[in-house]
Design a protein around this nucleic acid. Structure first.
Lengths: 292, 292
DNA sequence: GATTTGTCTTTTATCCACAATAGACAGATT
DNA sequence: AATCTGTCTATTGTGGATAAAAGACAAATC
């Protein structure tokens, strides 16, 4: 089967959205830019649109003939890349299922379960190994080290070092740095969600990631920024998995964030450090509480 | 060709060393333990030893018939794993050769040059990407970010955070922790090399890695210990590549290490921090000097 | 003259096959 | 009773094949 054309399908779906808002499509390179794909893929999309009588296509003339209907879209299951599917399956297995530390991980078995080749699973495991949750025994299996208390403590120790350093850098960013504008936006979103917390508390997870990533970015250090991936994936699956008291937890975190944001905006290193420490401490406690 | 039997060849060579010192070999599981391979490989080794009339083998009787000669060994080029060969080729290319940042890296071309399949190269690049020197553009090529001044500064920034933290932990290790004995050994080696610095200065590189890894290990934090891989690979190739004034540089570093070791042994956190800072500062300067 | 399109080549992502290696189990040996 | 050996099976490491996707280049169009 070689490569799945998930990129094509996903870009096609996104093209239909564009198409429902205009009467003609732009040039091929421009469309490629808009969809983030190469001209080869753009042309495949246009061909399919033409076949489905969505547009008439003659060289530069790409006229919309009708609005796309739900049945024109590819089903969402077909638009996820293989890597995403593998990640989800794997995380479900090791977080939800009984995942005792020390358990062996079998490439072939995982591949069969997910319905894919071993190469892709293998590459996923290699990429994933940098998160410190699994380890390879050469010429033999992988070992699950598990989402344990030690893991959480080691993770948060490094996180705290990095975020304190990043917050210190943040307050000294020049006035015209775009991070200040982004911070303002994030602040506004916090207030909006807090104002309607009962309905919108579940939006916190995404906002949390956006905020902390912004802080880490100001370190201008690739190792610090890259490490944020580890934190993000852990918290991402952690939120999905541990929903007890989510509303209260998130409300409290939003308040802490607002204090932290105000401290950053004050440009005072001491205030920023204090607010950062306070929030990180409670984030650590929350994470630890969810581990048996 | 599927898999190369480099493990077998390497283990066979190591087995010949054992064989030259005894008159009979132990049981298969024991031999496997000693060589770090499975019984399957042990049996392959024994078969070959028998064929080469090095031993007579009948079930539990494995009697050495003659001493191995140089011609019995496999040539060392054949005992390196594919991953090691790829790493060396790649590092030579990007460090020695003209490696401008922004250059594209082509899996197929690399594979052809090294004489291997694309899968292995690909897996190597994925593993290597955690060192922050290359970056993947999905569905497209890899980009070389280059061994630049920024890279060195970002690397040393994190290194300094981690090593200071580890040194602080080190001084509070309990008296009976094996790290103290290892530190003593390392200290002795330092003195031996310094005493005969003109001949032995090149042994510093390996000792340097051993010392700093010991310090990082005392953090008991997998992320800190894993990060030491990044430092180690950079310094490893850096030493191979920048040999100007190696004798003086190494002599100075050895002196600094001895001061640092004494400070650790004093168990005084303040002294340890000072000595650590002093050494890291000069290590950073040395690294930066070698970058244009 | 700058874009755009048509066409073609190159490269990546993925599956599959096969040798090397690990590992399991029962019968043999101490 | 414990360990070892013989034998067999399962899994990993690696090369090669192929569809999807990117990208190069010249001719066409504005």
């Amino acid at each position: 089967m070689a490569k799945q054309n998930t990129l094509f399908k996903d870009a096609f779906n996104r093209c239909l959205l564009l198409l429902s808002e205009t009467s003609a499509l732009p040039s091929e390179p421009e469309l490629g830019q808009a969809l983030g794909v190469s001209r080869t893929t753009v042309r495949a999309i246009l061909s399919r649109c033409e076949e489905a009588k969505l547009i008439s296509w003659d060289k530069r003339q790409k006229i919309v003939l009708r609005r796309p209907e739900p049945s024109d879209y590819f089903p969402t299951e077909e638009t996820d890349s293989l890597a995403e599917r593998i990640e989800r399956s794997f995380m479900r297995r090791i977080l939800a299922g009984g995942a005792e530390p020390g358990m062996q991980i079998n490439e072939l078995e995982l591949a069969r379960e997910i319905g894919t080749g071993t190469t892709s699973v293998r590459e996923f495991l290699i990429r994933f190994s940098r998160f410190g949750l699994i380890e390879k025994r050469p010429n033999s299996h992988w070992v699950l080290k598990g989402f344990t208390r030690e893991f959480a403590l080691e993770l948060t120790e490094v996180r705290e070092m990095f975020e304190l350093r990043s917050a210190a850098r943040f307050v000294s960013l020049p006035e015209n740095d775009p991070a200040w504008a982004e911070l303002k936006q994030i602040e506004t979103l916090h207030r909006e969600i807090l104002a309607d917390i009962d309905k919108r508390y579940s939006e916190f997870s995404e906002l949390d990631e956006r905020f902390h990533l912004l802080v880490h970015r100001s370190s201008s250090n690739r190792f610090i920024v890259d490490f944020y991936d580890v934190i993000a994936i852990v918290f991402h699956y952690h939120y999905q998995w541990n929903k007890a008291n989510a509303r209260e937890r998130n409300a409290r975190a939003l308040e802490e964030h607002l204090a932290y944001i105000a401290a950053l905006q004050s440009r005072d290193p001491r205030q920023a450090e204090q607010a950062c420490r306070r929030h990180l401490k409670s984030a650590r406690e929350t994470l630890l509480q969810s581990i048996p």
